[in-house]
């Protein structure tokens, strides 16, 4: 399989995730954009691991670490969003900024 396919998909997912983070008003959906960008990174790591075929499986092990860190990040991020919602009764980032 050509290495370009996963890399191009990863680029597209990263761009879409970046758009989501910048354009979404709902803070929870901004976090979804971050998850999408992290998934693009995972795709890149796995693609280069399969291409490089190293003995230590560096890319795939780092992907596992990224997935665990993403789980930690989304847990902490949602806790912060819930605290924000309790404080100001909205998760709209435009209204919170005012």
């Amino acid at each position: 399989m050509s290495l370009l396919y996963p890399l191009l998909l990863s680029s597209a997912l990263f761009g879409i995730g970046l758009y989501g983070v910048l354009a979404r008003r709902n803070a929870v959906l901004m976090l979804l954009g971050v998850e999408l960008m992290l998934n693009a990174v995972n795709l890149n790591l796995v693609a280069f691991d399969a291409w490089f075929a190293d003995r230590m499986h560096t890319g795939q092990v780092l992907t596992l670490f990224t997935i665990a860190l993403a789980a930690a990040e989304i847990g902490l991020g949602l806790a912060i969003v819930l605290a924000l919602f309790r404080a100001v009764r909205t998760v709209d980032v435009d209204e919170v900024g005012r």
């Binding site: 290495l3 970046l18 910048l22 691991d49 399969a50």
Partner: peptide, 28 residues
Amino acid sequence: LGVVAAVGLGATTIAGFGGERIEGRRIG
């Protein structure tokens, strides 16, 4: 910004890894 990021990353990868292939020699 999203399109710029995607196109920039895509162009970089095409320029850097255009002809490379995944052989699948080490199954994960």
